[in-house]
């Protein structure tokens, strides 16, 4: 028997919970999962790395690859292929449907989906991103040239979160596009996702006792993102997320981290997201999204 999990037509950080709900990751049902993307019309970098994470997690949990039905739309298939989705998806899913062979497009896909397994991969990600980031951030988003370095630093720190804390590998992707409905401006989006142990388990040893009954995914995210707590007792640790926040404060950016059943967001003035969402459908590991919007004319 097969259990069908539909991919939302527009898969992004907001519709992701709908996907997680349908996935019912912790379900003990023996049915094989079919991730059905046939009706998908669009997916953000967050959505694409999230799909890979779902497959990775299910593979680890059940010891078998989930099935995957590719989008019906040729345009969507090509777009996903250009972003590198099928390249890595082929190892994690049993793919059904026609997969186009197209090269990665570097015009708006700043960094195609890239595996992050070790420190060398972070070097690779940071090395690859800088030229494209300079072109997009300064050219399209009208950010000062110095924003490029901070952007690469934020990406580096987000990727290191996988290497240092997840206990497994993950993926990163970066893309520029226009947020018509939500912002009406061009944005650059970093998405980093893994199917690892998540923030709660990573910080349990140093924080759970302090929180008592309130300890959970939301409290763990608050500890890490708001208070800068690390699982290491060394005061020099936990600086990666602090550095990302510093960068985002300067460029009016947004960070959102989903882990387990909670999502914590530092909400900029242009967005109406909820700062902390709890009791979400469980999803393994951690998913980070960083958004840098095109700047207004106000100099900073």
């Amino acid at each position: 028997m097969t259990r069908i999990v539909e991919v939302p037509a527009h898969l992004d950080d907001r519709s992701f919970d709908q996907f997680a709900q349908a996935l019912a990751y912790e379900s003990e049902s023996p049915e094989r999962v079919l991730v059905d993307a046939h009706a998908a019309q669009w997916a953000s970098p967050y959505g694409l790395v999230g799909l890979l994470t779902a497959a990775q997690g299910l593979g680890q949990l059940r010891g078998e690859k989930p099935l995957f039905a590719v989008p019906t739309s040729d345009e969507v298939r090509r777009y996903w292929a250009r972003a590198g989705f099928f390249k890595y998806g082929a190892d994690l899913f049993e793919i059904h449907g026609k997969v186009p062979k197209v090269p990665t497009d570097e015009s708006d896909v700043l960094l195609g989906i890239t595996p992050v397994r070790a420190a060398e991969d972070v070097h690779d990600v940071v090395g690859k991103i800088q030229e494209g980031a300079r072109r997009i951030l300064a050219g399209e988003l009208k950010l000062e040239a110095k924003a490029t370095m901070g952007f690469a630093m934020a990406l580096s720190e987000a990727c290191q979160n996988i290497v240092e804390h997840a206990g497994t590998s993950g993926w990163a992707a970066v893309q520029a596009y226009t947020w018509r409905r939500r912002l009406g401006r061009r944005v650059v989006v970093i998405a980093v996702s893994d199917a690892g142990i998540g923030f709660r388990r990573s910080l349990e040893g140093v924080q759970a006792r302090r929180y008592g009954d309130r300890w959970g995914d939301g409290a763990a995210l608050e500890s890490a993102l708001i208070q800068g707590v690390s699982r290491f007792r060394d005061p020099g640790r936990g600086q990666g997320l602090a550095g990302i926040k510093r960068y985002l404060a300067r460029w009016d950016g947004k960070i959102s981290i989903r882990s387990g059943t909670a999502r914590l967001t530092i909400v900029p003035s242009w967005d109406d997201d909820v700062p902390l969402s709890e009791h979400l459908p469980y999803f393994p590991g951690s998913q980070v999204q960083i958004v840098i919007p095109a700047q207004s004319d106000t100099p900073r």
Binding site: A119, E120, H123, D124, V126, G127, A152, S156, V163, E164
Partner: peptide, 14 residues
């Protein structure tokens, strides 16, 4: 110290 073609100082192990 590390096998990288880049000149970026990133990551703790590096």
């Amino acid at each position: 110290a590390v096998d990288t073609p880049y000149r970026d100082l990133v990551t703790r192990p590096t």
